[in-house]
Design a protein around this nucleic acid. Structure first.
Lengths: 121, 121
DNA sequence: AGAAAATGCAACTCTATGGTTGCGCTTTAG
DNA sequence: CTAAAGCGCAACCATAGAGTTGCATTTTCT
């Protein structure tokens, strides 16, 4: 994975605002389901996406709005209906943030190990 | 990254509930900041974590409660104060979910490419 | 043209969430 | 012992979030 972060690269070099809204959009089981459905790359309409779900069409539309505002899906009007498709870049952004946390974590472990091994004598 | 998922491994094999609460806990700029602070592996008290933040100690404590309920941090009482530390497993769980989405996405792209190249003649 | 399908818009209800303040309890520090 | 530091509990407020229902609008389909 990524590496090379010296100190606290996250809290200083990041605003924490955009990633927060991203994660917030992911923080709902229904929306995660929608994303999982769309993860095959195919675009789907609101009705298609809501098919099988125990909520109203409007609820689905609202969830898709949230996902769209967070940049997680791409909207495209096609005749009578609207096609929603996954925007992989947003997923990658979320992954990026988590990767930074992990990188710092790994770095901390590495430094701790070095300290214990090298500086113990 | 990860690979080897055949079809829609996410929506079928996952309940979407636990990852949702995980992402929900990450969906707040203040909490992301706390996690970023803790990502160096060191444990900190509530007062320490709230130092510099423009909110009350209670607000910080509530955020830490959320993070704890989501399994993102580990609580440990030490004398008069309570030490919070990052639980890297939870971060990995979030990464895992996103990785599955990405894997399916990549798989879909690969299949599409194969279809376009192989089946065009 | 007329019916049916797929949305959009708006109003409304409920509950969860982020934040606050006040008070009491336990653990150091003098 | 007395202060004060660090927390937890509880009440309270305001707003955002999920979900609903009703109705108008735009596209198909026949």
């Amino acid at each position: 994975m990524a590496a090379g972060l010296s100190r606290s690269a996250i809290s200083s070099a990041m605003s924490n605002a955009e990633p927060a809204s991203l994660f917030a959009a992911l923080g709902d089981a229904t929306r995660l389901g929608l994303i999982a459905s769309l993860s095959d790359g195919k675009a789907r309409s609101i009705v298609q996406l809501g098919d099988g779900l125990p909520i109203s069409r409007q609820a689905v539309a609202k969830h898709l709005d949230v996902l769209h505002d967070a940049g997680l899906v791409h909207r495209r009007k096609s005749g009578r209906e609207v096609q929603y498709a996954l925007r992989h870049e947003a997923i990658e952004a979320a992954q990026g943030w988590l990767d930074q946390v992990s990188a710092q974590w790994d770095g901390a472990l590495a430094r701790l190990k070095l300290m214990l091994e090298g500086g113990k004598g």
